[in-house]
Structures are given as structure tokens and as C-alpha cells.
Design a protein around this nucleic acid. Sequence first.
DNA 1: CGTGCCAGGTGCCCT
DNA 2: AGGGCACTTGGCACG
Lengths: 237, 237
Amino acid sequence: MTTTRLHRPTHRDAFELVGSAFENGRLLTMFGRCEVHYDGRAASTLGPGQRLVIYKPDGTALVHTAENREPVNWQPPGSTHNASVRDGQLQIRSTRSNPTEQLDVLFERVETVSAYAVTDRSDLKLTGSEEDLRQWILNQPEVIEKGFHPIATERQTKAGPIDIFGEDTAGQPVVIELKRRRVGPSAASQLQRYVEAITTELSNPATRGILVAPSITDRAASLLDKWEFEYRSVEIE
Amino acid sequence: MTTTRLHRPTHRDAFELVGSAFENGRLLTMFGRCEVHYDGRAASTLGPGQRLVIYKPDGTALVHTAENREPVNWQPPGSTHNASVRDGQLQIRSTRSNPTEQLDVLFERVETVSAYAVTDRSDLKLTGSEEDLRQWILNQPEVIEKGFHPIATERQTKAGPIDIFGEDTAGQPVVIELKRRRVGPSAASQLQRYVEAITTELSNPATRGILVAPSITDRAASLLDKWEFEYRSVEIE
DNA sequence: CGTGCCAGGTGCCCT
DNA sequence: AGGGCACTTGGCACG
């Protein structure tokens, strides 16, 4: 049996199903009126209301309202779930350590519980990431400039890894920072840290910095300007 | 009736329920074997497998597997959902514009569909945010240093808004950047941009920069060192 | 609307 | 385990 469902169960019945779902590694969804208390990295309280609550076999807990992509409360993977019935409420506590945090969902009334056995899966293939942008540039270095020669990706520096490190026709070092979408000041600062690290490491003040992105804000542009860095507009394919 | 459920429905029956759920602003959950295609800011394909799919009345779509907090695929709020039956599959397409993107979920088999009417709600109260940290410091400026005098929060500069702007006992300007958790190089750079903006604006090279956070990485510390900025360790309460 | 930035960010990879 | 960073980041507040 791959699916077990209860409609308007007693707390005791819901408790039984929830407990066995946790034991057997089922994916669990619950809908009902509940309040939620979180304490850990921050602390929060969510007053009574109807929510969709999801418990995953990997320890994830999600509390969803009718709005937004983000759960209003959650617990990350690696947590352990525990159900109990007390004071006329079905309480489900999700706990983890490092950092220590716990999520309590207290159901006043459970409308629906469903437990699913998830066996069949396959992985996501995604294109259009920064990694794809990098491959595209490595295959056609001339989109940076004529004669640009890539030497390494993820080249390590004291300031962190450079997306693409290379040389121009004059043999001068070139530091390239890639972004798959419109960038602001932080990307310019990031490039600056890398260029400075390379400049110091190679003792070569002629090191160039190039920011590659589909577009750029005014503030980012003036930062590049100040540091005499360059910008290449590259549309994501 | 607040909840409608179908177990192993025909595509036609599922289509009817899904369509009316979209029309009536219901919260919808579906579990079944499906494949997913996304095209928009990036592009992705998810091969056949069992997933939990959620459609919210605000236009959100979420495709969850049995692992992780994040949906494997999704569509943000503001999208519109549309169901159809074709080629023996139940297709649900979620579309939005600006940016243009679309998500197709193709159910080969629907195990369960549930539509919930969500009427009862209340809002989240959260404590321990950066805003709380700011208020805590404004109430006790001496945690920064004896005689520190806050003048403004969110003070605007050419580089962006300063968390707390103030003066020390010598009357010198002080720029404070707050972080609620351990910080890396980007926070140091952020502080640097603000201090430079203030230094320029006030023509006062004695402007001080202070980073306030529970802890700090080595790289961030050496950046602060280089720029002669200071660091105050403040535990979140 | 775009710009900028926080988030209980999450997830991935690397050391 | 910690560091650094990308992410279809999402969400908010402000100009």
C-alpha cells in the first residue's frame, strides 16, 4: 500500500498514522488548524490557523500557508520528528542539534493526514546556471576579447576562488567574475577582492578585472569605474 | 465543504477537481508520478518520478521530492495555473510574465488530489532578527563603546543605507554594520563601501567603521584589519 | 516598477 | 565541521 489517508481523524488515530509514517520513512502531509512555535537560530510564534504541514523522511518539516513560495515555518533536513497527544492537541515536535533548534506544531484539529511511500525518483537536469555560462565562455574565449586565453577555473587565491583566470594578448593576468543575472555592488566588491589578491600574489599591478553579467546597476558600474575594471555584457543563452 | 479529496482518480476526474480548485481559490495538493519541465530564468527537466505538488491560490506552485527543504521545481506567487488532459496525461501549466517563465507538470498517474479551503489564518511573530539586534544596541549604545552616540538608522549614502550611523566621544563619525550571524568577507566589503561613502560625503578621513556580529571568519578579520575597521562581538539575545 | 539587502536563508563543493 | 558562494534565490522596504 503506497498511500494511507485519514479524513478528520481523532487525535489518537492521527497519532498512530503519523508515528508509523515517521518509522517507515513515509512522506507525510497534514492539513488542519494548528499553532506553531519555533526556537533556535531565532524564535517565532504562529497563532492558530489552517496550514499545510509536510514531514519528509529526511527530517525536513515544512509549514505552508496559502501564500508565498516559502514555508512560514520549517525545520531543515536531518531533524527528527516526534508525535504526542496532550491537552487535547496533537503535538509534533521536530528537533535537531548544531545548531540546536526545535519546531512544535500543535494541531487543534486535523482535517486530513496522508502518508505516501516514495520509491520512484529521478534527478533534475538544469541548464542556464553560472556553470553553463562558464563553459560557454571557455568554448568561445573571444566573447571576452580577441586573444583572451583562459588558464584556470576556480583558481584559488587568498581571497577565495576566481571564476575564470587567464591572460590577455599582452600576457597580463585577467580575473573574470561571472554572474548569471543583473549584478549590484557586491559583485563588484567580490571582483575587487580577487584582483587585489592576484595583484599581490603575482606582484603585478597590471592585473585586469572583468565582470561578466547580463546587466549591471549604476552603483556597480561606478565601482568598476573607480577600480578601473571592465564589464562585458553577456546574455544567458 | 472545506476539503475535497480524490484517490486514484481518472485524469478526467482529477482535471475537474483541479480546475474548480483553481477557480475557487483552494489550496491544492497532488501526489503522483509525473515529469516536470521548467523554462524561464533557467531551464530544467525532471524525469518521471513520484512527487508532491502544491498549488496555492496566490499562484505559487511547488514540486517537492522526499528530500530537502527546497522544492525541486517551482513557480513564484503571481503565476496562473491551467489544467488540461492530453496524450493520456494530466498536464498542469503554471505561467507568469516579467520574467516570462512557465512550469509544466505532467502527471502520468495521480495517486491523490486534495483541495482545501483556507479561511482561518494569523501572522508570524519572529524575534532575533537583525532589526531586534539594532533595537537592542540603540537601547544600550555602550555595548559599542562608552560614549557612543547613535544619530540615525538606515542613513542613506551613495553606497546604500547604513545600519547605524553615529558619533564617538571625540565627535568623529562612526559607521556600524550589523549582522545577526557569523560573517565573511562580503560584510567587511559592505562596511568598507559605506565608510568610504561617508568619508567622501563628509570629507572626514577619520570616519570609523565597526562591524557588529556574533563572530567573524579569518578572511573577514584581515579585511577589517587592512582597512583599520573594528569588530565588536555581540551575542544575539 | 528597479535597487539594495536581510534571511532561522538553503544547498553545493571544497578544504 | 567550517568557509566561501551560487541560487529560477525569496521577500521586504524604500526611492
